[in-house]
Design a protein around this nucleic acid. Sequence first.
DNA 1: AATTCGCCCTGTCGGC
DNA 2: TGCCGACAGGGCGAAT
Length: 301
Amino acid sequence: MPELPEVETIRRALVEPLTGRRILLAELRLPRLLLGFPAADFSAKLKGQKIRAVIRRGKYLVLELDKYALIVHLGMTGQLTAASRDATENPNFHKTVTGLQKPVGVHPVDKHTHLILHLDQGGRLLFRDPRTFGKLVLVPGHKWREHPRLSKLGPEPLEMKIAEVVPTFPKDSIRPVKALLLDQEFLAGVGNIYADEALFLAGIHPRRKVKTLKPAEKTVLLKAVQSVLRKGIKYQGTTFSDYRKPDGGKGGNYERLMVYGRGGMPCRICGTTLHKTVVAQRGTVFCPLCQPLASPRKKPV
DNA sequence: AATTCGCCCTGTCGGC
DNA sequence: TGCCGACAGGGCGAAT
């Protein structure tokens, strides 16, 4: 699922091909993905709009247009592909990629392609989402930060001051700490992959109750969140199924994960078999030795 | 008020 | 070989 590093990778790759381009035609092929705006008006409103900026907030991508903002959430399986004028359709675009190889051409318009923006200079932006958990929102003006979907988002993990966020941990909360990391009102952009990775790096059990965390542990955890997100961006995101960069290539971070997707395999640090369980209704992998739930009791004399 | 649960959706995979 | 249930999970609204 695209989380902050994946969305940021996509954003960076779209800045050059999209900024300054004018939308000639917008094809919305699955109208139910569009929220809060009459689907019938969508194409008419977008036509002629120039893309002014490509911005990320949490897991949301925002295209600032002349008079609107187009907010995109990729859900679990959303893909954005930028195609230049001379890109040819490759029927195997999504299947031929192995490793970090970059596919040739552009993905064809298939049954999972839900939005096509035709741009001046011959380029196209295609939005593809097999499981349709993605969402599109068109907001008049540029006050997209006030939209209900974004207004309550927590701080950006890579811009926050840790000393300012440590006091925002709920003091009496009995929630497992992983649930807090996944809460977009606490931090914006952390999802299941990077929550598990951050907890491992911090040496904190995903089921630890928030109220039992010491201040030093909160600091370590927030630093770990920043660390795993930066690493994710550095390697251009984690591809384990559907995530692709706008050129169709896979991210390079999956092979570098410490715990996510590695249940039953040995811990890269201590060799202990990694546990797979469910925390906060999400599949969760952790190392029982590196991430103890309780501090080790002194052996009775 | 805090927290959990159910739902949306479809490709993939393991079991028989 | 083919069918089928289980599974993956972000975010929202309902339920507790």
